[in-house]
Amino acid sequence: MSTERTSPIDSATGAVGDGLDYVRTKLEVFEGDRLGQIGLAILVTFLLIGIFARPYTIEFLDLTIPGLTPHDPGERAVGGRLESPSADHPLGTTDMGRDVLSQLIAGTRVTLIVGSLAAFMAVFIGTNVGLVSAYFGGWVDDVLMRITDIVYGVPFLPFAIVLVAILGSSLVNIIVAIVLILWRSTARVIRSQVLSHKQRPYVESAQAIGASHTRIMYRHILPNVLPLTFLYAAFAVGWAVIAEASLSFLGFGDPNMLSWGEMIYNVYTANAIREAWWWVFPPGIAIMLFVMSVFFIGRTLEEVVNPELRHQK
């Protein structure tokens, strides 16, 4: 590997800054793209719900912004056992008399945290692995790609279950488990993209003027593969959310953080799927809508990455 290094954090922030510029200039792709617009709208809605889910207290202003949840989502017996929707409880209550709507709203936050953090970390790792692997080639490439092979060999859910059993079921550990698996696809795709860029004249001329490896990788090549990174980030958000929901559904979720997956797990263990449709469907549909929104956005980004798709229109 190169002996010259710039701090990885510098390059990371650089990458993010570039990325933001990029997004700003490219946001126009959403114009005229119905699906993308719908996706954005849904995502922004969830974002707002997530942010304002619970009350905030701003101490120095002595001000409390009320939360969106009508009740404390964890409080037992705010209503009767398994009440169907009513004015008091628009989405009914759970078997322990908790308010479903409040749980749904509170669960948005977990989804947002898992989705954004896991996707960012997974894509960050994946992009770097792909970049380094393709740029240096040789044994570096061999080692990194074999590691990727192994990670591909690890079945995700069982692995996450084992990891959570070892580390304890907290949201952080669940995110770690997701990231450890999710980076693999980004790594492969970025690698193959970088491989083709490596041969191009601009890289050769950079090498000719004596630019460092780090500089070539992060200043010259990275901006060209960033669109692909963003595309994979969008998909990663979706996969991460599905992964968290599946883990929670199997009972390995964070017991202190109520997520949508865990809500369904609770209906399932309460054996109330048949009668409590108001408790089953909202979280399921929420997961679907959320993941759908990022996929719609991803599809729009795909057209940025692959302009040919756009020209066909």
Partner: peptide
């Protein structure tokens, strides 16, 4: 590392309905 908050008590779970 092995400690886990009982935030459940403070915020999420709240005071129990019956007590």
């Amino acid at each position: 590392t092995s400690r886990r908050r009982v935030l459940k008590g403070a915020g999420v779970a709240g005071a129990t309905g019956l007590v």
